[in-house]
Every structure is written in C-alpha cells, then in structure tokens.
Simulated assay, not measured.
Amino acid sequence: MLQDLFERLGYRTMTAHDGPSGLAVLQSKTPVDLLITDVGLPGLNGRQMADAARMHHPALPVLFITGYAQAATANNSLDTGMQMLTKPFSTEALLDRVRAMLGA
C-alpha cells in the first residue's frame, strides 16, 4: 500500500519482504534517500536493519513505523536522523513526515 502511494506521488521505491532482504538492498550500490521500516520484521528487526545499514551510510534517515512505540524505544533510544510514526496514522501525517525528513 505504501509503495503504491509513494509511486503515485513520483517517488522511486524499493521493497523487501523481511529484514535480511532489506539489508541486502541497503548494502548494495543502489542509492537510498530514506529508509521506512516497521520495527517488527521477520529475521532481523527494523532497528537492527537500520543500525547495520548505517554502518555503510551513517547519515541515512530512518522512519520507523510501529504499533508498539514504547517497546521499540524503551531500551534503544532513537539516534539522530531516526524518527518514529506510531500506527494508526493518517496518509497526510506520513507524507508530512517523509517530506520533512527528505527536506522537501
């Protein structure tokens, strides 16, 4: 659903079905301007994936989407350039956050 939304608005998107697949994309030579990920992913959670990706791209902005904000940040506070959007959220709230993170 998010992929369709962003592509209709002119953004280029890439998707992955789990954390390890997402990390493979992030470690490739494909440029990435913003990582949007759920915190709870199979195989490698979203925070682990983001932290591993930032070893190669330290300034990569990351937007975590989760229904469990307290659990997601309880032990690991968000680093600079990382933000969280808690479900449920409106399309407008998501787009506003993405635009702000991209500096658009």
Rank of each mutant, 00 (worst) to 15 (best):
L9R: 15
N45D: 12
D51A: 14
A74T: 10
L23A: 12
M55L: 15
H56P: 02
M49W: 01
T30C: 08
V62I: 13
L9H: 13
P88L: 04
L26S: 08
Q48T: 07
G10W: 07
T91W: 01
R54F: 01
S21A: 15
T37D: 00
N45K: 09
A59I: 02
G10K: 10
S28E: 08
G19Y: 01
K29I: 12
I36P: 01
A24P: 04
L95Q: 10
G67Y: 03
L94Y: 04
G67E: 12
L63F: 03
A53Q: 11
M84T: 02
R47F: 01
A93F: 00
K87R: 15
T37I: 05
K87A: 01
M49Y: 03
L85D: 00
A74K: 11
F64S: 00
D79L: 15
Q48F: 01
F89E: 12
S28W: 03
M14K: 15
R47H: 06
S90E: 10
L60G: 08
V62Q: 00
L9C: 09
F89N: 14
T66N: 02
Y11W: 15
G22D: 02
I65L: 05
P31F: 09
M55W: 04
G19H: 01
L35R: 08
V32F: 07
P88R: 15
T13N: 10
Q48N: 13
D38A: 07
G81Y: 09
F64N: 00
A59E: 14
G67F: 02
M84Y: 05
R12S: 13
G81S: 15
S28H: 04
P88C: 06
G43M: 03
P58G: 14
A74Y: 04
Q70Y: 08
P58D: 11
A59H: 12
T91I: 03
A74M: 08
F64V: 01
Y68I: 00
A93C: 08
Q48S: 11
S90L: 09
R12T: 14
G10M: 14
A74W: 02
S21F: 05
G19P: 05
N76H: 11
G22E: 02
A16L: 11
T91V: 05
T37A: 01
M84C: 13
L94F: 06
P61V: 04
V62K: 02
L23S: 09
D79A: 15
G22H: 06
A69T: 03
A16I: 08
K29Q: 07
R54S: 09
L85V: 03
L41Q: 05
A52L: 13
A50N: 06
D79P: 01
S77R: 09
T86S: 11
P20I: 08
I65W: 00
M82E: 12
V62L: 07
P42M: 04
A50C: 07
G10S: 11
Q27M: 13
L41F: 01
R47G: 06
T30Q: 13
L94W: 02
A53D: 15
V32C: 11
A59D: 14
H57G: 06
L63D: 00
T86A: 13
S90K: 13
L95K: 09
L78M: 12
L26M: 09
G10Q: 09
I65M: 03
T80D: 15
G40E: 06
